[in-house]
Design a protein around this nucleic acid. Structure first.
Lengths: 240, 240
DNA sequence: TAGTTACCGTGAACAGTGTTAACTAAGAGC
DNA sequence: GCTCTTAGTTAACACTGTTCACGGTAACTA
């Protein structure tokens, strides 16, 4: 395709081309099609050259994961520009709907990032790392700052979870405050962190179910199912 | 390993050996390790011989999926033998906990069966096909037959879902009645089918989240989280 | 400006993969 | 006995990831 001489162009350009070609192969023909030789072929290059950029195929795919994440984040942020800062319900809704829509439109990428049993201890998704989580937390932070959200009472969180949840809460607080939102600590207790966690659990669960087609019967339109869950979720957390 | 001549043994035996070897490779080294040559090697056979049994590697893996399903079903049924027929709450709990435990113990198999974006139209998992769904429906049927379960009122199911849900309900009714339980039709309306669907959505979602390590912070013990969701679920549906 | 050095890319090669084709040997059925 | 079916073999093709020794180009340095 792009038969122009590659050597003289910058390394960063080539790197970007490699990743975008890998992405293209991933979306069009599935993960088993993203092969070093195919990427190289499409770039007018030989396969061993890719080793100047990535240590191995797995390394490349790891970077792909990150790319997918930041792209998703950008997608969501652009969707958010249309809805005003004060419309908290609207922002949460577009975020959730955007996540679902993206996942359904990019099942391969979704599977790669959100359904790899590879993940070692949860260090991988420690929220502040991936830009995707940051988008969620940015709007969550703004909603939390209003003080209108109702989490669960701190006493209602199961005892064995308390320690982990306070860690999570501290994490959230740091990330949110780091993203320009001023969030007083007393608005985000462990009960609230618990509510946020369950929000994510249900959102992720439903999206995964849809993407992997695990609805136990033929569903002509899954959107109402998602919307009803979304209504549940927002109601439970006091958004209206 | 088993160096005894294979030729003289029955075809069914060899077939079973192929699949069990494939399973062994899957659980020990992941899906990319289940390769025709490795299977054949372990069986004291050459790779092309496998084409007498399966049309392709993908075909073999399809059959593997079914095997995994029936194994899971057997696992769950054996777990159910310990809890008496009348203890409906207990049976539902062991079913859900058993599903989770199995998924966490066999992440590779779980990913293969419950998280392949391959799935064409939902024909694949039309419930009556896979033995796994049947186990769930068998206990669900018995609980439903008591009339103690509370679903949602039929009017509460979103309009666009109604048509699909009645189809689902008919499916359920047929499967349950086919499994030896006598379930009068008026105990399973669309509202109840809706409740069952949401039960499954949340169960699957949480399990998938755990298996794929998508909890957004390091969780030393995820069990309480699961148990709290389980309590929610059973409470919502009126089990106690 | 000339010389050295760093580095991107090449070609060949190795071990492994799925898959096909031609062939062999052992049974089963008449 | 003779076919004929069939499980299994060997050889081969077109791929794959990965390594290695080599070349030329670009940049840095004396």
């Amino acid at each position: 395709m792009t038969q122009a001489t590659r050597r003289d162009r910058g390394r960063a350009d080539t790197d970007r081309d490699i990743r975008s070609q890998a992405r293209a192969l991933l979306v069009s023909d599935g993960p088993q099609a993203v092969t070093l030789r195919a990427i190289a072929r499409e770039l007018g290059i030989t396969a061993p050259a890719l080793y100047r950029y990535y240590a191995s195929r797995e390394d490349l795919i790891d970077h792909l994961r990150r790319d997918v994440c930041t792209d998703l984040a950008a997608d969501l942020e652009s969707a958010l520009t249309d809805v005003p800062q004060e419309d908290h319900l609207g922002r949460v809704l577009t975020l959730c709907r955007g996540f679902r829509a993206w996942a359904l439109a990019h099942p391969q990428e979704f599977a790669l990032v959100f359904a790899s049993p590879s993940g070692s201890p949860a260090e991988q998704h420690s929220v502040e790392k991936d830009s995707f989580g940051r988008v969620f937390l940015a709007v969550a932070g703004r909603v939390l700052a209003t003080g209108l959200l109702l989490g669960r009472p701190d006493e209602s969180v199961p005892d064995p979870l308390r320690a982990d949840l306070t860690g999570f809460r501290d994490d959230l607080l740091a990330t949110i405050n780091g993203s320009g939102v001023d969030l007083p600590a007393d608005l985000l207790g462990t009960g609230m962190a618990y509510a946020l966690l369950q929000f994510w659990v249900r959102l992720y669960g439903q999206v995964a179910l849809e993407v992997f087609g695990q609805v136990p019967f033929p569903l002509t339109n899954a959107e109402p199912l998602f919307e009803s869950m979304l209504a549940d979720l927002t109601r439970e957390v006091g958004l209206h």
